[in-house]
């Protein structure tokens, strides 16, 4: 088998990103959309780690940590919005909410 290079990691990252994007675009359940966003952020992390180890530099890992912090904040706020939405609109389906018109 060919040795694993940074390119492999980048390919994995790209595939994960595409799956995440597909999830965001297609799923009706907002919970799953939020999960897909987590996937996208993890794809970014893989990318950063790959470049970090490729360039022998821990800066990429620092950035990955910030992204994790960001993802956590996003999950907390997103789920808060979800609960508020469920309480007011009685739905958790993205295509039953069309508030972005106003």
């Amino acid at each position: 088998m060919a040795p694993i290079t940074t390119g492999h990691y980048l390919g994995l990252s790209a595939a994960l990103l595409l799956i995440g994007v597909a999830g965001v675009l297609t799923r009706r359940s907002i919970v799953v959309v939020l999960m897909s966003i987590e996937l996208i952020l993890n794809a970014v992390n893989i990318n950063l780690i790959a470049f970090s180890s490729n360039s022998q530099n821990v800066r990429g890992q620092i950035f990955a940590m910030f992204i994790i912090a960001d993802a956590v904040a996003e999950a907390a706020v997103g789920l808060g919005i979800l609960i508020a939405l469920f309480r007011n609109k009685d739905t958790v389906l993205a295509d039953e909410v069309d508030l972005l018109k106003w």
Partner: peptide, 11 residues
């Protein structure tokens, strides 16, 4: 911190 406060406020 802001995220925590915000999500508590919304939820």
């Amino acid at each position: 911190l802001v995220a925590v406060v915000g999500s508590v406020l919304m939820a």
